[in-house]
């Protein structure tokens, strides 16, 4: 049986798609066959972030409606072995997504894949509910910002009541906090919530802290998961988060402001 991981947040624009791409790539790099699915029907973006937008022919809804075979719709990554992307439909209606349809797709994926990463749309409507329904694990992407933390709390409530595991009285979905766009400099001046504060408020285990990084924009320009970037703090933080997910013990990095010389501080932003 494949392990289903939903990347969710409630709030939009916090880094779910960025995280889904890097997390899936990280799992695939560990040697596990991994598929990442975009659930954002009508507003697909994962294909751009994975850099496979020109190779999308069939999408999740085509597969659900029997218009294409799953293997025709899975796009094999050109850089990372064992990594496949399943795009969302850009033209269909959300109503074409059904719980049964997704269940069937996940079941078929489970024959071959070890991990399935579900990139959730924002909100707590149908698309987001379906993305999390079959989850075994939830990576709750949160920014150190008041409304993001509140929305994450809300989505934790939804996970605890409306996932399949909740409905069937199984062991609950395993929740992981991933704090993204963390800026230690602003934390140290008291402008931004501390990681400890967010952890305490949401009261779920911390999987990782991804620093705010300029590399993220460059990677999305290029269509490449951040985790593949060699020398970047954000990439290292994603690699560590994946390692922790896989059971390794890795200390948290990039929680403190990097000490910069005067010259480096002047050129801050170029790094």
């Amino acid at each position: 049986m494949a392990t289903v991981i939903v990347v969710t947040s409630g709030k939009g624009g916090v880094g779910k798609t960025t995280t889904s791409a890097s997390f899936a790539a990280g799992l695939a790099l560990s040697g596990a066959k991994t598929a990442v699915i975009d659930f954002d029907v009508g507003l697909r973006n994962l294909d751009l972030i994975m850099g496979c937008e020109r190779r999308v022919v069939f999408d999740l809804i085509n597969v659900i409606q029997g218009e294409a075979k799953l293997r025709q719709a899975l796009i094999r990554d050109k850089r990372v072995e064992n990594l496949y992307t399943l795009a969302a439909s850009q033209t269909r209606d959300k109503d074409a997504l059904t719980r049964e349809g997704i269940g069937a797709v996940l079941e078929e994926l489970a024959e071959e894949f070890e991990y399935v990463v579900c990139d959730s749309p924002a909100g707590i409507e149908k698309g987001a509910l379906l993305a999390l329904y079959y989850a075994d694990h939830a990576v709750v992407v949160t920014n150190p910002e008041i409304s993001s933390v509140r929305d994450s709390d809300r989505i934790l409530g939804v996970l605890a009541s409306r996932s399949r595991r909740a409905e069937q009285g199984d062991t609950p979905v395993k929740e992981h906090l991933l704090l993204t766009r963390y800026d230690p400099a602003r934390v140290s001046t008291g402008e931004m919530l501390k990681v400890g504060d967010v952890e305490e408020i949401l009261a779920i285990p911390l999987l990782g802290v991804i620093p705010e990084s300029e590399v993220v924009l460059r990677c999305s320009n290029l269509g490449q998961p951040v985790i593949l970037e060699e020398k970047s703090n954000a990439a290292q933080a994603y690699r560590d988060a994946v390692a922790r997910f896989l059971g390794q013990e890795v200390e948290m990095k990039f929680l403190e402001q990097e000490r910069k010389g005067l010259l480096r501080r002047w050129f801050r932003g170029a790094a």
Binding site: L48, R54, E67, R92, N221, L222
Partner: peptide, 27 residues
Amino acid sequence: SAETARDRLQIVLAHERMSVNGDDFLP
């Protein structure tokens, strides 16, 4: 990288706008 982004967008949007009637005809 911004130039790459612009090129990628031009291509992907040209194709998405082509099917304005919102119908994906491939299936």
